[in-house]
C-alpha cells in the first residue's frame, strides 16, 4: 500500500479557495486519515475521476443539509425552484472546480497532462457507486454548516507501471 501525502495540500488549497470564492464562506482544515478505498462517509457523494500521470478518483462527501446550504450560497438570488433544478449540477460543478484547481497545483509540468472526468453524483442512503480499490487519504474540512470529506485515491502512473509492468494496464477512470 503506497500513499503519497504530497497530493493532500493541493486539494486543501483548492477546496478552501474555491468554496470561499463561490459560496463566500470560510473553510477550516480538519483531520487527515486513511482508508482502503474512497468510500464516502455521508449521504451526498460526488465522484471525479483523474487520469494522466496520476490516476484514480477523488470523492467529495457531505450531509444533505451541508450540500443544500452550499448550493443556496452558490446560487444567491435564485428562487427555491431554480435552486432545486440546479442542485445536483451545482454540487458537481463545485467538485469539478476543486479537482480542476487541484490538478493545476499538482501538475507543474508543461509536458504532462492531468485530466478529470465529469463528476458523478450520488445522493441518498442506498445508492451503490463504483469506487476504485486504491489506498485513500481522507481529508476533513469544516464549514459553518458541517464537515466536507475529501477522499483522495490517486496513484502515480510510474508506480502503477512498476506494479503492473506497463502502460497497457492504465485506462481512463
Amino acid at each position: 500500500m503506497k500513499i503519497n501525502a504530497k497530493y493532500v495540500n493541493p486539494f486543501i488549497e483548492a477546496a478552501i479557495n474555491v468554496i470561499k470564492q463561490v459560496a463566500k464562506i470560510q473553510v477550516r482544515r480538519g483531520h487527515l486519515s486513511f482508508k482502503a478505498k474512497p468510500e464516502p462517509s455521508f449521504g451526498v457523494s460526488i465522484i471525479v475521476g483523474v487520469y494522466g500521470f496520476l490516476t484514480g478518483q477523488v470523492v467529495y462527501s457531505m450531509k444533505t443539509e451541508v450540500a443544500e446550504r452550499l448550493v443556496e450560497k452558490m446560487l444567491v438570488g435564485k428562487s427555491p425552484e431554480e435552486r432545486k433544478v440546479l442542485y445536483i449540477d451545482t454540487l458537481g460543478e463545485l467538485a469539478n472546480m476543486i479537482t480542476g484547481n487541484a490538478t493545476a497545483l499538482l501538475n507543474q509540468h508543461k509536458d504532462l497532462s492531468l485530466n478529470i472526468t465529469t463528476p458523478a453524483i450520488a445522493t441518498g442512503e442506498n445508492i451503490s457507486i463504483t469506487l476504485v480499490q486504491k489506498p485513500t487519504l481522507v481529508l476533513g474540512l469544516y464549514t459553518q454548516y458541517g464537515p466536507i470529506e475529501i477522499s483522495i485515491a490517486l496513484e502515480e502512473r510510474d508506480v502503477i507501471d512498476e506494479i503492473d509492468g506497463g502502460e497497457g494496464a492504465l485506462s481512463e477512470v
Binding site: 509540468h109 508543461k110 497532462s113
Partner: peptide, 23 residues
C-alpha cells in the same frame, strides 16, 4: 477549472483568444 499550463499553451496554440480559470 483545468488551469494547467499545458492546457493553456495548447489553447493559445490552436487560436483561442483567452483562457479563464473557474471559479
Amino acid at each position: 477549472a483545468l488551469g494547467q499550463e499545458k492546457m493553456l499553451l495548447e489553447s493559445f496554440k490552436i487560436g483561442v483568444k483567452d483562457f479563464v480559470v473557474k471559479p
